[in-house]
Computed example of a mutant assay.
Amino acid sequence: MGAQWKAKGREAAASAKGKLFTKLTKEIMIAARNGADPDMNPRLRLAIVQAKKASMTRETLERAIKKGSGQLDGGVSYEKVVYEGFAPHQVPVIVECLTDNVNRTISNIRGLFRKGQLGASGSVSWDFEHVGMIEATPTNKDADVEMAAIEAGAQDFEANEDGSATFITDITDLDIVQKALPDQGFTVESAKIGYRPKNPVSLSGEALDEVEAFLAAIDDDDDVHEVYVGLAAE
């Protein structure tokens, strides 16, 4: 399943796009706290790239940057909160939320974890690596993912079934590596800091279906930004 779980069977396209824009807007506002100039703010630069790929309008993008950087009055202040626990069958899960109301969020998360087990901070994060993750696609058939990883300075890589690759980096090297990959024949699709499982649990059949349904419900919550799971589907 990889480091980040992605839900199967999304909702209608319009609804899915609305949820994506909400998540992108929150990320831009959080990133803009450290400065409105993307040339001086790597996290904001990456958030802007993702927003443009999702066809966010320039007006919406600029408004999010101004709100986040304090240039507009009345902006919503979002806070990042992280929850750890287990899905059914003792599958470790890390849930990152961006919220303007922590009390609402924790109430929702507790409800969503009824079929699993919500743990304390550190209860499962020890079983994950906190790393940079770069999703990239080759620009030509001769692009070599292993050589690209070495030359760009990535720690590791995972080749995906669709021909793309996930490059794993030190957190501090994320921006450097994503800038270097185009010269190695890869187009960067996304880049972020996330969690990579060390010992993913292997499941199949009904057990896998149960875990996926649990994760889908969490991913559907408006405050949830990212879901990371130690799961390897057989």
Rank of each mutant, 00 (worst) to 15 (best):
N103P: 00
P42W: 10
S69C: 10
K52I: 12
V49Y: 05
S121I: 02
R110E: 12
V82W: 02
P92G: 12
F113K: 10
K53D: 14
W126C: 07
A120R: 07
Y83T: 08
K141P: 14
I65E: 00
N140P: 02
H89T: 14
E27L: 07
I106P: 01
G122L: 00
L118K: 09
A143M: 02
R104I: 02
A149R: 08
E79C: 00
V81A: 12
S123K: 01
L46T: 13
P88V: 09
R33L: 06
K66L: 11
I94Y: 05
D73Y: 11
T137Q: 09
D144V: 08
I28L: 08
G122K: 01
A120M: 05
V81D: 09
G68N: 11
R114S: 14
E146A: 15
E27N: 14
L72V: 07
L72I: 08
M29N: 10
I28C: 04
V91S: 14
P88S: 12
G132A: 09
D142C: 02
N101M: 03
V131W: 03
H130D: 08
P138N: 07
S121R: 07
G85L: 05
I65F: 00
T60C: 00
D127R: 10
G132N: 12
P42N: 14
W126Y: 15
L112P: 09
E96P: 00
D37Y: 01
A54C: 05
L72S: 09
